[in-house]
Amino acid sequence: MGKITFYEDRAFQGRSYECTTDCPNLQPYFSRCNSIRVESGCWMIYERPNYQGHQYFLRRGEYPDYQQWMGLSDSIRSCCLIPP
Rank of each mutant, 00 (worst) to 15 (best):
C19K: 07
E8H: 10
Y7C: 01
P49K: 07
T21H: 03
Q52M: 12
P49H: 13
M1S: 03
D22W: 01
N25C: 13
L81G: 14
R10T: 12
I36T: 04
Q27A: 14
E62V: 15
T20G: 09
F12T: 03
Y7I: 02
L81V: 11
Q13I: 10
C42R: 01
E18D: 07
T5Q: 05
Q13W: 02
K3N: 07
Y17A: 08
M1T: 08
K3V: 13
I76F: 03
S78P: 03
E8L: 05
G14P: 01
P49T: 13
C23W: 06
G14D: 02
K3T: 10
M44I: 05
L26F: 08
R48M: 07
S75M: 10
D22M: 02
T21L: 09
T5Y: 05
A11T: 09
N25Y: 15
Q27T: 12
R48C: 07
R10P: 14
G71D: 09
D22N: 01
E18F: 05
C23F: 03
K3Q: 05
Q27E: 10
L72F: 15
D9T: 04
M44L: 15
S75A: 08
A11Y: 10
S16W: 09
N25F: 02
T20E: 12
F12Q: 04
T5G: 01
P84S: 04
C23P: 01
S35C: 02
I4Q: 00
T20H: 01
L26H: 03
R48Y: 04
T20Q: 04
E8M: 13
Q13N: 07
C23M: 10
T20V: 08
G53V: 03
I4C: 04
Y29H: 13
G14C: 00
D22T: 02
T5C: 05
Y29D: 04
P49E: 06
F12C: 12
D9A: 11
N25S: 13
G14R: 04
R10A: 14
N25W: 12
Q52W: 06
G14S: 03
C23S: 14
S35H: 01
M44V: 15
Y7N: 01
Q27G: 11
R48Q: 10
Y51M: 05
Y7F: 14
T5S: 08
Q52Y: 09
T20M: 10
K3Y: 07
Q13E: 12
G14V: 02
P24A: 08
H54R: 01
R48S: 12
P83L: 15
C23G: 11
G71S: 03
H54Y: 07
